[in-house]
Design a protein around this nucleic acid. Structure first.
Lengths: 277, 277
DNA sequence: GATTCCGGTTGCAATATCTGCAACGTTCAT
DNA sequence: ATGAACGTTGCAGATATTGCAACCGGAATC
């Protein structure tokens, strides 16, 4: 709508790919150098971009600060986190939390079994919207017309033979998901990865987020993973309850029922490649 | 510099304080409603702001995604390099940069006195994880359980009498390092080589890398090397700041405090083959 | 040591772009 | 129903933005 702002904002994702100099920015933006310079200067004044020694630009600190505040405003994340950790501790697999926003589904939290450190690696990446379990859960709850138009506007990449092929199939799948209250993705994105997810609802019953457990075939079969469904659903419900202002259900957060019957997976085999030297 | 962009960007910190409706934004910006609307629309198109059900605006998750992507593409090495060179110029010794990855600590950059650049020969080499200063720094920051399991899985080669003997001693050393915020290796890998290192932290405070200065006994004593600690720490802090998208601090990069008191050594004629660190 | 190239920077005039206004919709509460 | 509150749109005027071309300053080249 506003050309100037539009151009300025277009610079950011561009720089997210890596540092760039003035000319590169100007070229990729399709504007004159001087124009790019002025836009960058404005961005700079607001701390959105930063100029390194070699004069190339990269994203600035302010952006990170804003991003931080942006997620903090997503209070689902904060509430969900301990539950996700608990879920991860019980099953050992990767746990995701995602929200729908502006025709996209984004991961906003992730707990990994093996490397708790690397948690932030993929967060923020848009999800494979046509196949991911969390995406199905979130889209299934959209108002019918919006769901339909979105489904028809999407492209359906054939990641694997089991990827959702087209809008019709997708809408049908969404109906199922909506009906049953949970979703799966069996090799629809990566041949060897399966996952099961459940919706997190706000006080009004709308789905505000979704969480899922993912694991590679080699660790657990699809059936075994599916046996985790009750646990996943329970976790989602606990988060929903707390998010809706309900009782914290503090017991469940910590480690709730130490009921190992639900836990199918063994601890992921640690592969210490034997380091040191 | 650019009024429109300036106004648009001013909306973001404003929204960071919490959701706001159109009129509030317009008022605080000091512009007409319609102007604010158009700016918000542009921000919206870029996913920088998001409109909730109640029509109020808040920061968009896309902001988060953007920052995340930027972090992934952040190359510590690239940012650190000039600082390492500067450090090398000031003290004359071998400077190392290392990261932790998959149960290993790897050198990813090295600056030698004579050759300001070239180090690909060493890049990727695993560090003597049980004794190197950089290894201690990186492992000290791991989450407790991971640190412990890793420490117990390691083998503790007795490179020298002063090498870390076992897991217990190592964990104790890591605790110390974690506490004091710097680390040393006095002859733990090569009898005649000492080094001091400091941690480089990301915006979230986690240690993302570590740098160190190494020198043989014959050039400087351990005490003399230790006197370089302030300089090493300062360098690490500068890198941290810049890595976090932080303040330019351009002055410091070049030559900051020309305080020669810190500089103990003359140019080393000996560079430690495949050093410890 | 001069010259050329490369990239960034600045002044300026033309105009495309943005702005504020005022009228219009829509929703919600009275 | 009526009114208020808030968001939205069309428009004309004016301002802010743009591209150009010239200008620098440094690095590489001859």
């Amino acid at each position: 709508m506003s050309q100037t702002v539009d151009r300025a904002l277009s610079i950011l994702p561009l720089l997210a790919e890596g540092p760039a100099n003035l000319e590169q920015v100007a070229t990729r933006l399709g504007v004159h150098k001087s124009t790019a310079l002025r836009l960058l200067r404005t961005l700079h004044e607001h701390g959105m971009v930063y100029r390194q020694q070699d004069q190339r630009y990269r994203l600035g600190a302010r952006l990170f600060a804003l991003a931080q505040e942006a997620v903090e405003n997503l209070d689902v994340r904060e509430i969900a986190h301990p539950h996700l950790v608990a879920l991860n501790e019980r099953c050992g697999h990767t746990v995701h939390l995602a929200v729908y926003e502006e025709n996209e589904v984004l991961y906003i939290d992730k707990v990994e079994s093996r490397y708790p450190v690397r948690m932030y690696s993929r967060i923020g990446k848009p999800v494979a919207i046509t196949v991911a379990a969390v995406a199905k859960l979130l889209l299934a709850d959209l108002p019918e017309p919006e769901r339909r138009t979105l489904a028809e506007r999407l492209t359906y990449p054939a990641y694997t033979p089991r990827s959702t092929p087209n809008a019709a199939a997708f809408l049908k799948e969404l109906a199922t998901v909506r009906e049953q209250g949970w979703a799966t993705d069996f090799g629809g994105h990566e041949e060897s990865i399966n996952c099961v997810g459940a919706p997190i609802r706000g006080a009004d019953g709308r789905v505000v987020a979704a969480c899922s457990v993912s694991a590679p075939n080699v660790v657990v079969t699809a059936e075994e993973l599916l046996s985790l469904l009750p646990l996943v659903r329970r976790t989602a419900e606990e988060i929903s309850r707390e998010y809706s202002g309900g009782a914290p259900v503090s017991a469940s957060v910590s480690h709730a029922s130490q009921n190992p019957s639900q836990v199918t997976a063994e601890t992921p085999e640690k592969r210490a490649e034997e380091t040191s030297s």
